[in-house]
Nucleic acid binder design. Structure first.
Lengths: 247, 247
DNA sequence: ACCTGAACACCGTTCAAGT
DNA sequence: ACCTGAACACCGTTCAAGT
């Protein structure tokens, strides 16, 4: 099932009929969001300013306000584009593989757009929610159709999504790409080598080991959650009918 | 064990010995951080600007640069203050109750300072890490002293902390305190009542139910993780000696 | 050694004016 | 209907000058 809601209707780009005066296509919501997403991916979210975005589109910053009420609306828009990249499984399969694939896809997508993770938590103050809604509905459906009770589904969804977001943020926070200040590494090293924190030292060393052979840490944590959910479901299924439970 | 590293030595506040000319105590790192934390708690992190912080301290914004190299250093400082509020268990107890208490304390602390959650992931570009290090060391120690292998400890730590951060961010993101735009609620309602998203509708309703009687969602997810870890440890303990494993 | 005033290079956003 | 130039009210930060 891959339902799509009313797509935003965009005016077609006029075929610059007369003369050679206008070189650039008109501004549209889609073009603005595309450029914004690109800018954030290339240069980081802090490089995404209205002036720079305008420049990239060959337009003054103020023109953007003809298409979006605020910068926040643009941010909401590109976050929804990112969430739209998450692959949602078709219905009908095993819940464990479906949810697993969904979570892994979200993990990969968020790693591709490192700036997005922090924004996902804030919105949705302008109502650019289409992909978000599809994502949540897909997860919920998989649990419910596998026979999870509404109560267990409620908690299962939060547990899974907490892991996806929490783990991804952790990883992104640690892999600061070469932006690590040598002075800071120095201090960190000094603290660790006092011997006061043996376990932290051990842990820090592990971060430098090659883990390519093993299961990823993301999957390890995901399995903890999924295994637990399987047990919880097994515990509730025989005890109560699947159609409901008296309160 | 409650080790403390070299405390920052602060010049004592001079007792304004002469006349009544100077009314305010001198600026110190500690006073600046205290005021910054207060400002963030009261008015949100976006209200924390150098000018406003200076104003609260009765000083020009530029004076702050005599004590901190940048605004970022101040942010790192107050985040570390927040992390310092997390209660760390004494060593020697059961790992499950210890880790559990630690996670719950972190959860509560982060809910008390809703702005902190998003900052925790970014630093530590200025090396204000004392509380952070204590926190991580405490978690690692509990696992290791309970007989977890270094490998399992590595993953256990990441799994637990992912849940703490992920779940807390989720909760904070959803409980936007009355800042919800009615127009957005309207749209959300419209989407949900199309009937296209039955599971989302069910889920949304659950969010309005009284859950005070039940175990919190945070604890539910935490238990999934902790139960899973217990099983993983049981699986590795009899098979290999606790002192090490040949690779 | 610490604090200040003025300034710089940026922000997001408003508004009247253009076409 | 869309785009623009100038301006406003803010940012973080630098720097020469004060004490």
């Amino acid at each position: 099932v891959h339902l799509r809601r009313k797509l935003v209707k965009e005016p077609e780009v006029p075929k610059l009929s007369s003369g050679t005066t206008t070189r650039r296509p008109r501004l549209t919501k889609a073009r603005v969001l595309e450029a914004a997403l690109q800018l954030a991916d290339e240069s980081g979210i802090e490089a995404l300013t209205m002036r720079r975005l305008g420049e990239r589109l060959g337009v003054e910053a103020m023109s953007l306000y003809n298409h979006f009420p605020s910068k926040e609306a643009i941010l909401d828009g590109i976050v929804d584009l990112v969430i739209g990249e998450i692959e949602l499984p078709d219905s009908g399969g095993e819940w464990e593989t479906g949810v697993r694939r969904c979570a892994l896809s979200a993990y990969e997508v968020l790693l591709r757009h490192p700036w997005a993770c922090r924004l996902v938590m804030i919105p949705p103050s302008t109502g650019a929610l289409n992909s978000r809604i599809d994502y949540i509905e897909s997860l919920l459906r998989q649990f419910r159709q596998a026979g999870f009770s509404p109560e267990l589904t409620y908690r299962a969804y939060h547990a899974v999504d907490s892991h996806v977001l929490g783990f991804t943020m952790w990883e992104l926070g640690h892999n600061l790409p070469a932006s690590v200040d040598p002075a800071l590494v120095e201090e960190m090293f000094a603290v660790v080598s006092t011997g006061e924190f043996p376990y932290l030292l051990e842990h820090a060393k592990q971060h430098f080991e090659d883990r390519s052979e093993e299961q990823s840490g993301f999957e390890f944590g995901l399995d903890l959650v999924l295994d637990g959910l399987k047990r919880r479901q097994a515990a509730e299924t025989p005890a109560v009918s699947q159609r409901g439970r008296k309160h």
